[in-house]
Design a protein around this nucleic acid. Structure first.
Ligand SMILES: [Mn+2]
Ligand SMILES: [Mn+2]
Length: 301
DNA sequence: GTAAGAC
DNA sequence: GTCTTACAACGCGTA
DNA sequence: TACGCG
C-alpha cells in the first residue's frame, strides 16, 4: 500500500506486486507505471468523455466486470458526469489527469472505453468509427484488405480516416468530424460506406447481426456509432496474452499487412510512441464536415 | 478491489 | 469476524 | 413485442 500525491491529489495504490499477466510476469504496479508513462499521449483522448470501465482485479484472465456508475468511495476530486438512464442516474467518471488515471487503473480497470462524444456536446460525436470485427477464422490479410476498402471509400467521399489495432483481434478506423451531427446521422454515413465495402468484398465481409448468419466472415459493425456505445481506448491494454495494446497504425502498415496485434505490447509501445509520436493526434484535431454526404445521399457510392 | 450486506 | 455479493441493463435491427 | 448483439 503506497500513498501518492499527484499534483496535489492524494491517492492510495494497493497490491502493487499482484501479478496480472502471469506468463509475461507483469504486475499491477507495472501496469500503473505503464499508464503513467503513456499518460501524455493517452489523456487527450480521454479528456471530457464519459468512460465505461472494465475491471480485472485478478488479472487479465480473472473474473472481470463492467462499471459505469462511479462508486461512492471514489476520491472527492474525481470528476464525474451524471447521465440519466432508464431507471437511475449513472455518474460516469471522467479522466483528464494522471491522478484520475492512476485511481482508475488501481481499481483494476486497465481497459477503458470512452464515449464517441464529449460532455459538452454529448449528442454530437467527434468521430465516425468503423469497427471491423473478424469472426474466429478470418485471416489478417482479409482484415487489412477490408480496412483498405474502407480507406478507399472514405477517400472517394473526401474523408480522412485513421486506423488502430483494437489490440484484441480486430481493427478500427476513426474518422474525425466536426461535432455538429447527430449519432443518427453518422450511423447513416457509416452504414452506407459499410454497405459499399460489403458489396465490393462479399466473400470476406458481412453486415449480418446474427452470428449464426455471418459464415465466419468479418463483421462490419457500424452500429457502434450510437450514444453510450464505446470502443476500447487507443493506447489501452487489452485482456489478452502478451499484454497487447490498442495501437494506431499508419496506412502503409495496414497496406503492407505486416503489423499484427500481438506485435504491440506493454513492452515496446513506449519506444514506438517516442519515435513516431501520437499517430492518432489528427483524430483530435481534424474537424471534417459531412454536409456534402448528408445533403445528397446519391453522392455516396 | 472494495464495501456493504448476510450469517 | 468472516463470508458472499455487486459492480451494465441500452440502442438498434430483425423476426 | 421479443430477442440477439455489442
Ligand atoms: Mn471491435
Ligand atoms: Mn463491435
Amino acid at each position: 500500500m503506497t500513498q501518492l500525491s499527484i499534483a496535489g491529489k492524494e491517492i492510495t495504490v494497493t497490491n502493487l506486486e499482484k501479478v496480472w499477466w502471469p506468463d509475461e510476469g507483469i504486475t499491477k504496479g507495472e501496469v500503473i507505471n505503464y499508464y503513467v508513462e503513456i499518460a501524455p499521449w493517452l489523456l487527450p483522448h480521454l479528456a471530457g468523455r464519459p468512460l465505461v470501465l472494465t475491471r480485472y482485479p485478478n488479472g487479465w484472465a480473472g473474473k472481470s466486470f463492467y462499471q459505469k456508475h462511479t462508486p461512492g468511495h471514489a476520491p472527492a476530486w474525481l470528476k464525474t458526469f451524471p447521465l440519466a438512464s432508464d431507471k437511475r442516474i449513472i455518474n460516469y467518471c471522467l479522466v483528464d489527469d494522471v491522478a484520475a488515471l492512476v485511481w482508475v487503473v488501481n481499481s483494476g480497470a486497465f481497459e477503458i472505453h470512452p464515449f464517441l462524444s464529449r460532455i459538452g456536446t454529448l449528442e454530437q460525436p467527434d468521430f465516425i468509427v468503423f469497427d471491423l470485427d473478424p469472426m474466429e477464422k478470418v485471416t489478417w490479410e482479409h482484415i487489412c484488405e477490408t480496412a483498405m476498402a474502407v480507406a478507399q471509400g472514405l477517400e472517394l467521399w473526401g474523408l480522412k480516416g485513421f486506423p488502430k489495432l483494437s489490440g484484441s483481434t480486430g481493427l478500427q478506423i476513426f474518422v474525425p468530424i466536426r461535432p455538429r451531427y447527430t449519432y443518427s446521422q453518422i450511423r447513416e454515413v457509416a452504414y452506407s460506406l459499410c454497405q459499399a465495402v460489403n458489396a465490393a468484398l462479399p466473400q470476406i465481409t458481412t453486415m449480418e447481426r446474427s452470428i449464426a448468419k455471418r459464415e465466419g466472415k468479418l463483421y462490419l459493425d457500424y452500429l457502434q456509432n450510437a450514444l453510450g456505445k464505446t470502443l476500447a481506448t487507443v493506447y489501452g491494454l487489452r485482456p489478452r496474452p502478451g499484454a497487447t495494446i490498442s495501437t494506431p497504425l499508419t496506412w502503409e502498415e495496414v497496406a503492407s499487412m505486416r503489423a499484427r496485434p500481438q506485435d504491440f505490447t506493454l513492452f515496446n509501445i513506449q519506444k514506438r510512441v517516442s519515435e513516431k509520436g501520437d499517430l492518432f493526434r489528427p483524430v483530435l484535431q481534424l474537424k471534417q464536415d459531412l454536409d456534402h454526404l448528408l445533403l445528397s445521399p446519391d453522392s455516396r457510392k
